[in-house]
Each structure stands twice: as structure tokens, then as C-alpha cells.
């Protein structure tokens, strides 16, 4: 339907429930941040495969459709390809194949495979986590997570609100992009036949109306907040969140897992 739908996986992929729903969103965000960091701290293929098993488990628990998950990988495919190709040729070691200045090494292959797995893990894991947190929950958890920053003078509410708005507006901006893109094509521009240079011109020309409408939208949003009497001191939360026994179990598990990856 929409040209840019492939990218907009955040709102279009809504989990239909499942076991991950019982966890507090803060636990899920913690798991996402922790595991995404940890996977970069180990080179051990055995440990990496445990990460993958964990990922499959989480996907199974989230009740997301496998097809949609795979199609959302399309967005990062380019990144994976580029890093894999670059890494395979850039790491020194035992040479397998070489041609002029290009040398493929065993270590390079191993390293690029590791990087590809890490990118896939991070994108899929965060996809599953994000699609299991609804917007209200996300706003509340960000506010609570940033609360301690108040002590050092950072207005945590504004920060959390900004982040929530940014995430909320991804789909809005994508549909705006789609409208502008179509409006430009409708002037009889045949994008597929353009030379590379003209294609670049075309995309730049889309950015002007895009930036203009985005600024307009930001202004409207600020006005709407003002009109509804938004003040950070007095605001409450639409959604309440609280830790349960499940969260404790999950956190203990994460702790044990971290120790095993780092020390085991």
C-alpha cells in the first residue's frame, strides 16, 4: 500500500499479548539495553548461540507473526550487508582468497559473521520489546526511569515527553513522507528512469516540503499542549505501571545471565 510501510515497523507491529505482557515495561527496556550491550562484549560462539536461543524464546513468547518479523529485517539488511562485506576484507589474519588489494581472511569472515548476528539480534530483540510496550506505558516508564536525573538539574519530564513524542511521530511523519513522495511523482516524474544524480535531486526536493510540514506539525503540537494546560509539575500518568514477582524473576535471570557471559 504505502511505499514506506516497510520501515514503519514500530506502530504496525502490535503484539497480540502473550507472556511478555506480564512484565513491567521498565524490565523489558532494561533487558533490551543490557542484552544489546552484552552481546558486544563476548566473542564466544557458544555464548552467542545462547543469545539467539533467548531471542527465539522471546519471539515465541511475544506471539508476533514470524513473517512480519522477517519482513521488518529488510530495513537493516543494507546495514548488515555493508558491515559484513567491509569487515570480511578489513581484518588481518590467515588469508583464504586474495585479488589485487582485496584479501579475505578467516578471522575477517568470523568477525563479520559475529557482527551480522549482533545486528540481527539487537534489531529483532528491540523490535519484540518495543511492540510489547504500548505508548502510555512507554511514556510512564521513560518518566520514571529519568526521574533520578532531577537531582542533577535535568528536567526529566521534558526529556521523557520529547522522547515519547519522537517515537509517536515516526508513523505520522512516514505517512507524510509518502504523501509528499506521491505528490511529486504525480507531476509525471518517472523515478525509476532517472539517473543517479537526478534521483539524488528528487530526494532532496522531497526534503523541503517534508521539513516545512514537520515544523508546522511541531508548532501545532506545542499549541495543543499549551491549550490543554500541560505543565510538568502537575501532570500525572495515564497508565500506571508496577513491578510484580515476574519482574523480580526476570531481573534475577538477567543478572545471572550477565555474570555467566562476563565471568563464565
Amino acid at each position: 500500500m504505502s511505499t514506506f510501510q516497510g520501515i514503519s515497523y514500530i506502530p504496525s507491529l502490535r503484539s497480540r499479548g502473550g507472556l511478555l505482557r506480564v512484565l513491567d515495561p521498565r524490565t523489558k527496556l532494561l533487558a533490551m539495553a543490557l542484552l544489546s550491550t552484552l552481546i558486544f562484549l563476548t566473542d564466544d560462539l557458544l555464548k552467542i548461540s545462547v543469545f539467539l536461543i533467548l531471542l527465539l524464546l522471546v519471539i515465541a513468547l511475544s506471539k508476533l507473526s514470524i513473517l512480519r518479523i522477517i519482513s521488518s529485517l529488510k530495513a537493516v539488511l543494507f546495514l548488515i550487508l555493508i558491515t559484513t562485506i567491509l569487515n570480511s576484507f578489513m581484518v588481518e589474519g590467515k588469508v583464504i582468497w586474495s585479488w589485487k588489494f582485496l584479501t579475505l581472511t578467516e578471522e575477517g569472515l568470523r568477525f563479520s559473521l559475529l557482527v551480522a548476528i549482533r545486528i540481527i539480534f539487537i534489531s529483532l530483540f528491540s523490535l519484540v520489546v518495543i511492540s510489547n510496550i504500548d505508548q502510555g506505558e512507554l511514556a510512564t516508564s521513560l518518566r520514571r526511569i529519568f526521574k533520578p536525573l532531577r537531582r542533577v538539574g535535568v528536567i526529566s519530564d521534558d526529556f521523557a515527553l520529547g522522547l515519547t513524542i519522537a517515537i509517536r511521530f515516526i508513523p505520522v511523519l512516514l505517512s507524510e513522507l509518502d504523501r509528499i513522495y506521491t505528490a511529486q511523482l504525480a507531476k509525471g516524474i518517472e523515478l525509476e528512469r532517472l539517473s543517479f544524480r537526478k534521483k539524488v535531486d528528487f530526494w532532496i526536493s522531497i526534503m523541503v516540503p517534508m521539513i516545512k510540514t514537520t515544523l508546522k506539525r511541531a508548532e501545532d503540537l506545542a499549541l495543543a499542549l499549551e491549550m490543554r494546560g500541560y505543565y510538568e509539575e502537575t501532570r500525572g500518568d495515564l497508565t500506571d505501571i508496577s513491578f510484580s514477582a515476574w519482574d523480580l524473576i526476570a531481573i534475577y535471570f538477567l543478572l545471572a545471565f550477565t555474570l555467566w557471559v562476563q565471568l563464565g
Binding site: R179, A183, Q184, K187, I206, V208, P209, T213
Partner: peptide, 8 residues
């Protein structure tokens, strides 16, 4: 009309 203008 605004989405059809790509310049100022």
C-alpha cells in the same frame, strides 16, 4: 498545494 512544491 503545499506538498507539491519542492522549493520555496
Amino acid at each position: 498545494p503545499d506538498i507539491s512544491f519542492s522549493h520555496l
